Amino acid sequence: MPTIDRIDSFADELTAIRRDLHAHPEIGFEEVRTSGIVADKLTSWGIEVHRGLGGTGVVGVLKGKGTSGKKIGLRADMDALPMEENTNLKWRSTIPGRFHGCGHDGHTTMLLGSARYLAETRNFDGTVHFIFQPAEEGLGGARAMIKDGLFQKFPCDEVYGLHNAPDLNHGEIAILPGPAMAAADFFDIRIQGYGAHGAMPERSKDAVVIAMSLGQALQSIVSRNVDPLQAAVLSITQIHSGSAYNVIPGDAWMCGTVRCFSDEIRALIRKRMREIAAGFAAAYDAEISVEIRDGFSVLVNQEEQSRVVEEVARTVVDPAKVITRSTPKMGSEDFADMMQAVPGAYFWVGHDGSVPVHNPGYVLDDKILPIGASMFARIIEKRLPVGAHA
């Protein structure tokens, strides 16, 4: 099954845009250059542009043929990750400590490709809102746009988003109705003990020992408090303490993330983390504070919009490559917050390469750019058909 011929005809231009964005990555709420390029492209294609939602967010508004009042949102994220790139690409990152290691440069380019095609053809009856979102990587860009009145200023009857997927094969598209991605909390635990000489541990309240013991105990929450039939993850991703070989530090800091699909499990894990930390504070005669932040909601694909994605996918790729019962992902995605306000669906586009996202060697496959752009465009043409309101 084909991608859209017109989009294929400017695929090289999409690749050039994507590689330029890749070479100049910007992290959350700093996407000044990226959002400027997006706004300029949309304007050049005759699309009405609004800037500044959620900081650096951009919304393009395009009206089609006819008189339908229906409005659909298409969303792409724009931010990079604060990490180094370890590839030998000619278009690799030119900014130290910044890397499009999750493929958001590709998502942005796909949405631009669909915007260009739809602006040229306007073969739809209604309005499309092209939503270019900042700060998806844990900084709350979706919530920032919503707080700034995204859906009041640009009402949508439904919204769609996508993500590249190196764990799928090229040409595969996956859509999972129902809960598809986990909710996420982020936590910081600060331990205040009492420092001493490394040779005199009896005079200390050793923050390192407390951190190691507390970290082990926290792992028991999922294994001993959460129903084994419920998916949950608690990962400690950072531990900071100490400055010398012969100094027992009095302070330590731990942080990490919790993922699950249930608000009840989420509340249970938060409660147990605080209770265990309080118990360790008493046991070690130290002070332990626990800060837990709500990072992402559970991403739930609505049945109707999931069927739309499935049907459209069968016209863009080989129907045998459309996967409708993929495994839910423990990763999180703040598009979930948009879908709590507006019904929608979020799907994955497979590509060549097996290096996972968030790995310094990750490489996006540019051959999927026309696939993603065609998916977005055909969703609009299917949901806003010309003549349906005659």
Rank of each mutant, 00 (worst) to 15 (best):
M1F: 03
P2W: 01
P2D: 13
I4D: 03
D5I: 01
R6H: 02
D8I: 00
R19H: 11
R19N: 01
D20L: 03
H22Q: 05
H22C: 08
E26S: 01
E26G: 05
E26K: 03
E26W: 06
T34E: 02
S35C: 12
I37S: 02
S44C: 03
S44E: 12
G46L: 10
G46F: 09
G55Q: 11
T56Q: 15
V61W: 02
K63V: 14
S68L: 12
S68Y: 05
P82I: 06
M83S: 03
G101F: 07
C102Y: 06
D105I: 11
T109C: 07
M110E: 01
R116C: 05
Y117S: 06
Y117M: 06
A119W: 06
E120T: 13
E120A: 14
E120S: 12
T121K: 15
H129I: 07
F132N: 08
A135I: 01
A135H: 06
G138S: 07
L139F: 10
G140M: 07
R143Q: 15
M145L: 09
I146V: 11
D148F: 07
G149I: 05
F151C: 06
F154K: 12
D157R: 14
V159A: 15
Y160H: 09
Y160W: 09
L162C: 10
A165Q: 13
P166L: 03
L168T: 09
N169G: 14
A174R: 15
L176A: 05
P177E: 12
M181E: 11
A182S: 15
F187E: 13
Y194G: 09
G195T: 07
A196H: 04
M200L: 13
R203N: 15
S204A: 15
A207D: 07
A211G: 05
M212N: 09
L218H: 00
R224V: 02
V226L: 00
L229I: 08
A231E: 07
S235K: 04
N246Q: 09
V247E: 05
V247Q: 06
I248T: 08
I265Y: 08
I265A: 11
A267D: 15
R270D: 15
R270S: 13
K271T: 15
M273Y: 08
F280W: 04
A283K: 02
A283I: 01
A283S: 11
E287G: 10
I288C: 03
I292F: 01
R293E: 14
F296D: 09
S297C: 03
V298Q: 11
Q302V: 00
E303S: 10
E304N: 11
Q305V: 06
S306C: 08
A313E: 02
V317W: 02
V317L: 02
D318C: 04
P319S: 08
K321R: 12
K321C: 00
T324V: 09
R325V: 01
T327S: 04
P328T: 01
K329I: 04
M330C: 00
G331F: 02
D334G: 02
F335D: 03
A336S: 15
D337S: 14
Q340R: 15
W348I: 01
V349W: 10
H358I: 05
N359E: 10
N359L: 07
I368K: 13
P370N: 10
M375N: 04
A388L: 08
